[in-house]
């Protein structure tokens, strides 16, 4: 996985989002085993405590589960994965609309733009 972090948000929430994206996009398929905390922390270049916190959060949300001594796995629950897909899509849509509003685009113009893009 590729890891990039930006300013404002806590790093652990950025990790949570990156893993969610990997799960939804299929980069981490259902049932896939995650690397250990230490390896993931090293790969992402972050503090192991931060990685641990992000994984706990993903566990709390039911997207990954841990098997004692065997590691962590991506959930096989398709409904949960679809839920995350909707959540992420909603977030991107909201950010897109905010940017468009700032440009002074009207709803009808935005729709026209999206449809034109689809046809290309």
């Amino acid at each position: 996985m590729e890891w990039k972090f930006n300013g404002g948000a806590p790093i652990y929430t950025q990790i949570v989002d990156a893993v969610k994206l990997a799960i939804v996009s299929g980069e981490l398929p259902p049932g896939a085993r995650l690397q250990g905390v230490r390896e993931l922390a090293l790969e992402a270049g972050v503090n192991p405590n931060t990685m641990q916190r992000a994984l706990s959060e993903l566990e709390r949300e039911g997207l990954v589960y841990s098997v004692r001594t065997a590691g962590r796995y991506v959930t096989g629950d398709d409904a949960a994965i679809q839920e995350v897909r909707r959540e992420l899509a909603g977030g991107y849509a909201a950010a897109f609309l905010t940017a468009m509003e700032r440009l002074g685009m009207k709803k009808s113009e935005i729709i026209k733009l999206l449809e034109a893009d689809k046809e290309e």
């Binding site: 404002g8 806590p10 790093i11 503090n47």
Partner: peptide, 27 residues
């Protein structure tokens, strides 16, 4: 990105001490 906690020090005094992620979240 590797820090758990940050301590800001200036002119011999602690100005701020906080978990790094909490600081990012609040500010």
């Amino acid at each position: 990105r590797v820090l758990d906690d940050v301590i800001f020090i200036n002119q011999g005094k602690i100005v701020l001490a906080s978990p790094a992620d909490q600081l990012r979240e609040q500010q």
